[in-house]
């Protein structure tokens, strides 16, 4: 699903440049539940942004669903994001003046779906995350966990191949963290590839594979206990 070879990325800072990713090799197959661990500054967010086509890499090769990603223009990137990827952010990133239902339906709007149809689908997904009764509430009327569940419903609405989650539980307490992680597990059980970035061990433990990053390099890549159990 995702194949990365010798990926480099640096950011210019003044005259110098900051070398963030120093040759990453990573292969994530369809249906995997992977977490990327690392302290801040290890390059995990940069990796996610490149995988999510929100940023461009400098060197190396990146294949998404078998397609080589190289010098995409914005339009193509947008279409690929819409087709293959679903995003979940730490700060939820819901549009504040739209109801939960409209937020979930928005990616379908950019897909060009008719209003009635996409609202139906959006409601379906809200039901799936247990927020059907909150469909017509604005984000500021929802709790943090509810917001993140809306964001997950939004990420799922377009039936993406890969769900990318950047610190999905970073702003949540432990109870809501568990419910969000349960949701991600359910998604993965349905066959979707889930790619989580986190710095919390408890979160990483609940995934099937943990990749640890340090200073722009992968220092370990192992299957977790749950992953082993599932594999058997």
């Amino acid at each position: 699903m995702i194949k990365i070879e010798k990926l480099h990325k640096s950011y210019p800072i003044g005259k110098d440049s900051l070398h963030v990713l120093k040759g990453i090799d990573l292969h994530i197959k369809e249906g995997e539940f992977v977490s990327i661990m690392g302290s801040s500054g290890s390059g995990k967010s940069t990796l996610l942004n490149i995988v999510g086509l929100l940023d461009e890499h400098d060197e190396g090769k990146y294949y998404l669903n078998g397609q080589l990603i190289d010098k995409l223009n914005e339009k193509k990137a947008a279409l690929l994001r819409n087709k293959f990827l679903g995003f979940i952010f730490q700060s939820f990133n819901l549009i504040s003046y739209k109801t939960a239902l409209e937020n979930v339906a928005l990616p379908l709007y950019y897909k060009g779906m008719a209003r009635k149809e996409r609202l139906e689908i959006a409601l379906e997904y809200l039901d799936k995350v247990g927020l059907k009764d909150w469909a017509n509430h604005l984000p500021n009327e929802l709790s943090g966990g509810q917001k993140q569940r809306v964001a997950i419903a939004r990420a799922l609405a377009t039936k993406p191949k890969v769900v990318l989650a950047d610190e999905p539980t970073g702003a949540l307490d432990s109870t809501t963290t568990d419910s969000v992680m349960d949701l991600l597990k359910d998604i993965n059980d349905e066959g979707m590839t889930v790619f989580v970035i986190t710095h919390e061990e408890e979160v990483a433990e609940q995934t099937k594979r943990v990749v640890r990053l340090k200073d722009g390099l992968i220092i370990s890549d192992e299957i977790t206990a749950i992953g082993k159990a599932k594999a058997i």
Binding site: G52, L54, E74, K75, A78, L79, R81, N82, K83, G86, F87, N93, L94, I95, L106, P107, Y110, K111, R154, T158
Partner: peptide, 16 residues
Amino acid sequence: TKEIGIRRAIGATPKS
């Protein structure tokens, strides 16, 4: 800017 960023992350093309 942020809202536009969100819209683009979920698949809005520059044209739209």
